[in-house]
């Protein structure tokens, strides 16, 4: 078994090396003009230079901070609102259909509205991120609550649990798998909206940086920014799936 995964890793690294080699061949033979498409080496140099002394590190921190803040706001609001709506059947009947109606609305379509109210500001970007990432959390919590084993509600009535206790002791744990999955989705949305917001509102960050790099045809800087954005996404979802594994250990046991 161990040997098998070893072989898989080697093959994977070989695949990655081939990918970079193909990239290098394309740029070496100038199949695409180097103005648009930098070689791997140039991207790497731009990445190192930007992170060591250049602006990339500060921009990365800015973007990550924006993304995390919006995501936290959305998660807290989404789970709390979702719990309030989800725990009462009556509230669900009145509110859930409207939420379902609003769900397919692209979060980015709210950007002009947010600009109209808040102008091109950091708050505007934050509101857009929080609003966009709110939906998966909210709907997953409501859905998780309504999918809870009905007997558990009966049990809680017999035990005379208060509504808060029901939420904390029964409903939240049983909705946890769905909530955790939506947290990951929310983080992806937050990153996307942070980048879009920075591009549009010209706020400091990676989104603005790659847009400016592309306008002045600094393709190496542009690709370095994209590499960092990919890394942010990778690390974020990696951390969340680790948390998921830890928090849902009980589920794996009972299955």
């Amino acid at each position: 078994m161990k040997q098998l995964s070893m072989q898989k890793l080697l093959l994977g690294l070989l695949g990655l090396a081939t990918f970079i080699l193909v990239w290098k061949v394309i740029t070496d033979f100038k199949l695409v003009s180097p103005i648009f498409f930098p070689s791997p080496a140039r991207t790497w140099t731009a990445l190192l230079k930007g992170l060591a002394g250049g602006p990339l590190l500060a921009q990365t921190l800015e973007t990550v901070q924006r993304m995390l803040l919006g995501w936290l706001l959305a998660s807290l609001a989404g789970i709390m609102l979702g719990a309030l709506i989800g725990v009462s059947r009556r509230a669900r009947a009145f509110i859930a259909p409207t939420l379902e109606l609003l769900r397919p609305l692209p979060a980015s379509a709210m950007i002009p509205i947010a600009i109209a109210f808040l102008g091109f500001s950091d708050q505007m970007v934050l509101v857009v991120i929080a609003f966009g990432a709110l939906w998966p959390m909210l709907l997953a919590t409501i859905h998780g609550f309504s999918a809870m084993e009905p007997r558990l509600y009966e049990v809680s009535a017999v035990l005379g649990l208060s509504r808060l206790q029901v939420i904390r002791k029964l409903a939240l744990p049983s909705a946890m798998p769905m909530i955790l999955a939506s947290l990951r989705l929310g983080l992806t949305i937050s990153l996307i909206l942070a980048v879009v917001g920075e591009m549009l509102a010209s706020r400091e960050g990676l989104g603005q940086s790659i847009l400016l790099a592309s306008r002045s045809f600094r393709s190496a800087d542009l690709f370095a920014g994209i590499v960092i954005l990919g890394a942010i996404g990778l690390v974020g979802s990696g951390l969340l799936s680790l948390a998921e594994q830890r928090l849902l250990r009980w589920q794996a046991v009972t299955r």
Binding site: L13, G15, L191, M199, I226, L229, G230, A231, G233
Partner: peptide, 23 residues
């Protein structure tokens, strides 16, 4: 097996980051 690692590395790149490149 050969492409899995590469795909996993490319997949998290947010699609909006590609807007400047394609533009």
């Amino acid at each position: 097996d050969a492409l899995d690692l590469t795909i996993e590395l490319l997949r998290p790149v947010p699609v909006v980051a590609l807007i400047p490149v394609v533009m």
